[in-house]
């Protein structure tokens, strides 16, 4: 059975980067797939990888992560709107991030608008 946990961006907006990462990793270690509203900043993604690597042990093998909703295809008006929202709310609320424990999620493929989540026991 797959267990999914949705995290709205309001739940992590006020947290520090360190606390956001801790929260997400705590859920992943409990074998749940996280659907996070919004995206981490590049620095937070790097921090997430660092903390994930530090946490790897016999039971926790790491994570699979995928973010969707890039700015690259948007016009500059939308980019400015979202940058302002990010500045005011302190979080990138656009898009979505999927994070799953590597013990359950084999691979998350993005190609580029479609997402395929392959689990370990899927036939």
């Amino acid at each position: 059975m797959l267990r999914l946990q949705f995290i709205p961006y309001t739940e992590i907006a006020s947290l520090t980067s360190e606390n956001k990462i801790s929260k997400v990793l705590r859920i992943a270690k409990n074998n749940r797939i996280i659907l996070l509203e919004g995206k981490f900043s590049p620095e937070e993604e790097a921090l997430l990888i660092e903390r994930t690597m530090s946490s790897i042990n016999r039971r926790f093998k790491g994570i699979e992560i995928c973010s969707v909703g890039d700015y690259s295809k948007e016009d500059w008006v939308n980019k400015i709107k979202k940058s302002l929202a990010k500045m005011l709310l302190g979080v990138n609320a656009s898009g979505m991030t999927i994070i799953g424990p590597a013990s359950i999620v084999k691979e998350i493929k993005r190609d580029p608008d479609k997402i395929e989540l392959l689990t370990k026991n899927m036939r």
């Binding site: 590049p42 993604e45 992560i65």
Partner: peptide, 17 residues
């Protein structure tokens, strides 16, 4: 390989930042 891997996006995003 598929270039849309999150690791690639993270590396490039960090360099841009």
């Amino acid at each position: 390989e598929n270039p849309y891997d999150q690791v690639n996006v993270t590396i490039i995003g960090n360099l841009a930042a």
